[in-house]
Computed example of a mutant assay.
Amino acid sequence: MKYIAIASRSIFYLALLVTTSVRAESVAHKNVVLITQNPQTVTTKITPFVLVSLAYQGQYRSQGIPGFASLISAYRFGTITAKDVVKAAILAKELTPDVLTDRDYLSAVDLQLFALDQPD
Rank of each mutant, 00 (worst) to 15 (best):
S62P: 02
P97S: 11
V109P: 01
N31D: 15
D98Y: 11
I65D: 03
L16Y: 05
A28G: 08
A55Q: 00
S26D: 09
A7C: 09
S53D: 09
D102V: 10
Q59K: 06
K93R: 14
I80M: 06
A74Y: 01
R103N: 14
A24E: 14
L54I: 00
G78Q: 08
R76H: 13
S26H: 06
Y13H: 15
I65W: 00
L34D: 15
L116H: 02
F68E: 03
L111M: 12
I80K: 07
M1Q: 12
A69P: 05
D110Y: 04
T79L: 10
G67T: 05
I90G: 11
I72R: 04
L71F: 00
L113W: 00
A115F: 09
Q59A: 08
K83F: 15
T79V: 10
V42K: 05
A15P: 04
N31W: 06
A89I: 01
F12I: 10
V18Y: 05
Q112C: 02
L14C: 13
D120L: 13
I90P: 07
L14Q: 14
T20K: 08
K93M: 15
D102Q: 12
L51M: 10
L54P: 02
D102G: 03
L51I: 07
S21L: 10
A89N: 04
T43K: 06
A55G: 01
I46N: 00
E25G: 04
